[in-house]
Design a protein around this nucleic acid. Structure first.
Length: 438
RNA sequence: UCCUCGAUAGCUCAGCGGUAGAGCAUCCGGCUGUUAACCGGAGGGUCGUAGGUUCGAAUCCUACUCGGGGAGCCA
């Protein structure tokens, strides 16, 4: 039974409770944990906005309310009515003196206890795991990262355009695609919206996409998801240099906004904030040529013309306190659409952005080929069927201009900002090799 | 696809040739200021599956299944 509404006019969230000192309020949540000393119970209640200690004293509540408190178990749903009271014995400095409890539903034998669990068990119970403070903090930060990205791009003249998820062809032709039946044709889940964003940039000037992409690669590492989100800005009349300037400004703004808005979450995760505060333009830059020489001097067996492996990237990035651009890779190891450097056609006007602390590549970008004849040559070299890509060639035929863009991996970015061991925690329901449930 | 590690109670693990264990969770009892609360008691297992070696296998061997970490590839 709810108490008299006149007595409890205020239903609020736990995050707002501090605004109601010495007032009667009602909160609606779940029991996170309970400690009992017989005649006094301490209920830790969470509601998604935060958590608060609620104290139930036997001598101060009706017997039926104390009886409810006794049977509540972890993750029982409960509505709590009580008085907000300052108390130095509570970690927040205030707590809720319970006057009434409404037992909304039970949670018998809740699987995720406050003890240690293995990753297999936690991933099988991901639908419940996300209720824990740490996972909640990560998902909050992920949401803030997306908001910060939108804020920055929307505030700088970009228009959001959503490319299709179902596509008739491969965007880059290299990675494994998920294929599906599209009525009587074959179709694929998108692995990148980039080519569509190039079309959109010719329509709107500066555009970006945010959404899921799919790679059917048998990759099983802390940096890989099968389904992950990319944010792909594409800018007409942007040179390679313009592109890098935008990237460092963009990523710095995102990190600083997360620092400003999510400090409690970052602290809960134990993140070293000084490392994030260092993320300010300009970012260091290294040419591919210099990176190869540097790696060779460190004893790595890499030759000019080869792409970097994961250990190479880590070691390169760990020299710096902020992300580093590695630019002008050999044209042959990069995607067909990248603009060759006019002074050195054997390298492309492209850059990967490597995050520090071993998180690897979080951004890949380039200036795109805008010349019709050169693009046509690339089609022949890469054996791309003209009929499938006719529309993409049209972009070079009708009012083509130099343009550039990049793609940033959301989960890798979130993992880096949060200091996570693995990108799987950066998605609410990660899709991994050998793991599709829940 | 390759390399590597693992699978024992609901969970986390110990046991590594001789009668299946602990902590937590659950249930019962105690406790008016707890912070992964604490104290006492109870129930709980075809030791991943299938073969093999052995007087005897959770333990040794083989295959398979499922999963963790990594490589390649990529964001």
């Amino acid at each position: 039974m709810l108490l008299n509404p006149a007595e409890y006019p205020i239903t609020t969230t736990i995050a707002q409770v501090h605004n109601y000192m010495d007032q009667n309020i009602r909160i609606q949540g779940w029991l996170y944990s309970k400690r009992s000393s017989g005649k006094i119970h301490f209920l830790q209640i969470r509601d998604g906005s935060g958590s608060i200690q609620c104290v139930v004293v036997r001598s101060e509540v009706p017997p039926e309310v104390f009886a409810v408190s006794e049977v509540l178990s972890q993750e029982s749903a409960v509505i709590v009515e009580g008085l907000v009271r300052r108390d130095t014995r509570s970690s927040l400095g205030y707590e809720l003196s319970v006057q009434n409890l409404i037992h909304v539903s039970t949670a018998p034998d809740y699987p995720i206890t406050h003890k240690e669990h293995g990753i297999d068990f936690l991933l099988d119970h991901r639908h419940l795991w996300i209720r824990t403070p740490r996972q909640r903090a990560i998902l909050k930060i992920r949401a803030e990262v997306l908001r910060a990205m939108s804020d920055y791009l929307d505030g700088n003249g970009f228009t959001r355009v959503d490319p299709p998820i179902l596509t008739p062809t491969a965007a880059e032709g290299t990675t494994e695609l998920f294929h599906i039946q599209y009525f009587d044709q074959e179709a694929y889940l998108t692995q990148s919206g980039q080519m569509y964003m190039e079309a959109a940039a010719m329509a709107m000037g500066k555009v970006y996409s945010m959404g899921p992409t799919f790679r059917a690669e048998r990759s099983k590492t802390r940096r890989h998801l099968i389904e992950f989100w990319m944010i792909e800005p594409e800018m007409a009349y942007f040179t390679h240099e313009d592109n890098l300037k935008l990237q460092e400004s963009f990523l710095s703004a995102v990190v600083q906004q997360v620092l400003n808005h999510c400090q409690p979450e970052l602290e809960l995760l134990g993140r070293d904030l000084t490392r994030l505060r260092a993320v300010q333009p300009p970012f260091p830059r290294m040419s591919y040529d210099d990176a190869v020489v540097w790696l060779q001097n460190q004893g790595h067996e890499i030759q000019w013309g080869e792409d970097f492996g994961a250990p190479d990237e880590s070691e390169l990035a760990n020299q710096f306190d902020r992300p580093v651009f590695i630019e002008r890779y050999p044209t042959k190891v990069k995607a067909f659409y990248m603009q060759p450097d006019p002074k050195r056609p054997e390298v492309a006007l492209c850059a990967d952005l490597l995050a520090p602390e071993g998180y690897g590549e979080i951004v890949g970008g380039s200036e795109r080929i805008h010349d019709y004849t050169l693009m046509k040559e690339r089609f022949i070299e890469h054996k791309l069927p003209n009929e499938d890509y006719a529309w993409y060639l049209d972009l070079r035929k009708y009012g083509s201009v130099p343009h550039s863009g990049f793609g940033i991996g959301l989960e890798r970015t979130v993992a880096w900002i949060c200091g996570l061991e693995h990108v799987r925690e950066a998605a609410a329901f990660p899709r991994l090799l050998y793991r599709l449930y829940p």
